[in-house]
Simulated scan of single mutants.
Amino acid sequence: MTWTIPNILTTLRLLAAPGVVLMFLYFTRPWADWFALLLFVSAAVTDWFDGYLARLWKQESKLGAMLDPIADKAMVVIALLVITGYAGMDPWILLPATVIMFREVFVSGLREFLGDTAGTLKVTKLAKWKTTAQMVSIAVLFATGIFQHMLIERTVGMDASVIAEIFEGGDDPLNLRLIQQAYWVTWWVGVALLWVAAALTLITGFDYFRKSLPYLKDEA
């Protein structure tokens, strides 16, 4: 194994996936959300850099080719588990998350069955857009958690009538209305992008299955 910079970046991205869970185990919210967002975005950025540097420096390797898709899937699946958990199993998130996870498991099993043949089924541009949509939606939904808990922190101990007055247009020194707006915007944008990602996931999964059909036929 050759530990080039691209391979090191890919390995760090793989390790960052379970790191997202650790943020919620060892930090209180919204700090956990902040750290998870920063870790996830940093890892997502390396997804572009490791491939770019490997091609630029001609350091493409079998190790990198093996680890790269695993790191991508681990990041997406683990982050979706975390978001689904703290969202309280909200169906707006649970349904597209289920579609994405099912596709990733199905395609991974298909690739394992195909063995060396799987390497001949090239990754399409649509599949890359699918991965981008997944990562952007997850990042936005982590931001939703930040705004949600900022709102909770700033209203702890505050009388309900005072809170109601603020949201009805009263004096707002804590910027509660702005935080609430940011919460709703990131929520709906994140959910919309997650459904887009789920749709792209289904399309690319079906395309991969269709291309693999000739290799799944029993010999006559």
Rank of each mutant, 00 (worst) to 15 (best):
A118E: 06
A118V: 03
G119Y: 01
G119I: 00
G119N: 00
T120R: 01
T120Y: 05
T120K: 08
T120M: 04
L121G: 01
K122I: 04
K122W: 05
K122G: 03
T124V: 03
T124A: 04
K125A: 11
L126E: 07
L126G: 07
A127I: 09
W129F: 13
K130P: 00
T132D: 01
T132L: 15
A133Y: 09
A133Q: 05
Q134T: 03
M135P: 00
M135A: 08
V136D: 07
S137Y: 08
S137G: 06
S137N: 02
S137H: 01
S137K: 07
S137D: 12
I138C: 13
L141H: 00
L141P: 05
L141F: 06
F142M: 10
F142W: 03
A143W: 00
T144D: 11
T144C: 09
G145L: 05
G145M: 02
G145I: 09
G145P: 02
I146L: 11
I146Y: 14
F147G: 00
F147C: 07
F147K: 07
F147Q: 00
Q148F: 11
Q148E: 13
Q148V: 09
L151W: 09
L151V: 10
L151G: 06
I152G: 00
I152T: 12
I152Y: 10
I152W: 07
E153L: 13
R154K: 15
R154E: 12
T155C: 01
V156R: 14
G157E: 10
G157D: 06
D159T: 08
D159Y: 01
D159V: 02
D159G: 11
A160D: 14
A160M: 13
A160L: 13
A160N: 11
S161A: 15
S161E: 14
V162G: 03
V162C: 04
I163A: 11
I163Y: 12
A164G: 01
A164W: 02
A164F: 04
E165Q: 14
I166D: 08
I166C: 09
I166W: 07
I166R: 12
F167T: 03
F167P: 03
E168V: 02
E168N: 15
G169I: 08
G169W: 11
